[in-house]
């Protein structure tokens, strides 16, 4: 990851901006209903190892003098699904082992909750996205080693 950040440092113009957008290293929640009517049903228990490694890589790039952190924001992102099949398909997109062994239990909880909800109720996965803004730093110490 640090190698990729070094390459981005090289490709950016002096004073260029690096924006790192990705899910925050926090568990997502699954709920029913949209926007303000959303009600939490269950937490997802993803393996957050990769997310934490990415955070460390970003800190490392800053400590190497490649980038200067300028701002950081966190906000919820919703994924709205019409049916249980959509939800199942979405879960299957996670890398193998990222959710197991929780995924079946999670699916059953959502299925039960949906069974008592009004027809047409949508399933919404809600989780924080993280946006880090970093400015390219130019100096003798980080111009070598590319």
């Amino acid at each position: 990851m640090v190698h990729a950040l070094r390459k981005l440092h090289r490709l950016l113009k002096p004073d260029g901006l690096l924006l790192d957008l990705r899910p925050a290293a926090k568990h997502r929640r699954i709920g029913l209903g949209e926007s303000r009517r959303w009600k939490s049903v269950a937490w997802m228990r993803e393996d957050l190892t990769d997310d934490r490694a990415a955070n460390r890589a970003l800190k490392r790039a800053a400590s190497l003098g490649l980038f200067q952190p300028e701002a950081k924001a966190e906000f919820d992102l919703d994924r709205v699904m019409d049916t249980l099949d959509d939800f199942r398909e979405w879960m299957s997109d996670f890398p193998s082992g990222k959710l197991a062994p929780e995924d079946d239990r999670l699916y059953r909880r959502v299925e039960r909750a949906l069974g008592t909800a009004r027809p047409g109720t949508r399933i919404v996965a809600r989780g924080p996205l993280s946006l880090s803004v970093l400015r390219k730093q130019v100096g003798e110490e980080n111009e070598g080693g590319h």
């Binding site: 990729a4 113009k13 690096l18 790192d20 957008l21 990705r22």
Partner: peptide, 16 residues
């Protein structure tokens, strides 16, 4: 393979 100092903004889209 690109020359250096080419982009104003780089966005890591859910990819780091």
């Amino acid at each position: 393979r690109r020359r250096r100092d080419q982009f104003d903004i780089a966005v890591l889209s859910w990819s780091l």
